[in-house]
Design a protein around this nucleic acid. Structure first.
Length: 279
DNA sequence: ATGCCTCGCGTCGCGAGA
């Protein structure tokens, strides 16, 4: 199985490009972020013509997450337990949920398409929202892993955090002044690794960015950021046989500012991985 | 540099993105 994540920056502006890539790369399941539309506005026909079913979760022109899959999708959730909401200018609990998380199960694998809040600025209420959102997601992930020991889980999406200095190549992001690299954001990300999740791409693709700003020739200068990740539970990580950052998708006409990230998994219906080794 | 792109909205200026 080939599984991928991609912040598409408007699916209506990018459907042709996304479907072409899915077919060309033989992708089975794609988690998308920033579809920027409601489900009834999603360009379903182009996906269905290529053999993909779509589940979309979008509330308005902002955010929005979706899955496209050639395999059956079950157990759909449009938010994780404890997910906080946000409304600009509002404070306290009971702010409305945004369309930033979508969970499904495919072939026994629990997977989430996640669009972590941007943060906007170190002094902005959106940063507190981002940190709370990540902390709540980490708590729910820990709870889920304890309740489902040994079950494969993949958290994939746009995390809006550059976890190490090697992941930040955009000179406009300044330590002490900028989001994405601040110590609390990095701590919120590394808490997932502490909880037992594994970055399944980095060991196989040790360098490279997944995002380049549209402005200031960031892509030609390769001044990008690695902020899109696939984190897996141990059993999920054990099944990963390959990983790719599809850098070429930043080229050509009307690209997203993010590129897709994919992993290949050993076939789920053979039991080679469970067979005891005999010497 | 309050800038530089790109997108959606809703009518050409603004919020949001990272």
């Amino acid at each position: 199985m080939r599984l991928a994540t991609w912040n598409v920056n408007s699916i209506r502006a990018r459907a042709g490009r996304v479907v072409d890539w899915l077919v060309r790369e033989d992708v089975d399941v794609l988690g998308m972020q920033e579809i920027k539309c409601k489900p009834e506005q999603f360009p379903l026909d182009e996906f269905e013509a290529a053999g993909y079913d779509v589940i979309a979760h979008g509330l308005n022109q902002w955010n929005g997450v979706a899955f496209a899959s050639r395999l059956p999708m079950t157990d759909v959730e449009t938010a994780f337990a404890g997910q906080p909401g946000f409304l600009k200018g509002a404070e306290g609990p009971d702010q409305p949920l945004e369309a930033r998380a979508l969970g499904i199960t495919v072939d026994g694998i629990r997977m989430w398409s996640l669009y972590v809040p941007n943060g906007r600025g170190l002094d902005d209420p959106h940063l507190a929202y981002k940190l709370d959102w990540l902390a709540r997601l980490r708590e729910e992930t820990t709870r889920w892993m304890a309740a489902n020991p040994g079950s494969p889980l993949a958290l994939m999406g746009d995390w809006n955090v550059a976890p190490t200095d090697e992941d930040m190549g955009d000179p406009s992001f300044v330590p002490g002044l900028s989001t994405h690299i601040s110590p609390p954001e990095r701590a919120a990300f590394s808490a997932f690794l502490d909880a037992g999740l594994i970055d399944v791409v980095r060991p196989l693709v040790p360098t490279g960015y997944t995002f380049w700003d549209y402005k200031q020739l960031r892509f030609p200068r390769n001044e990008g950021m690695r902020i899109d990740f696939i984190l897996g539970s141990p059993t999920f990580a054990d099944s990963v046989t390959a990983a790719h950052i599809h850098r070429d998708e930043r080229k050509g006409d009307a690209p997203s500012d993010h590129v897709p990230v994919s992993v290949d998994l050993a076939a789920g219906d053979d039991d080679d991985l469970d067979r005891p080794m005999i010497f």
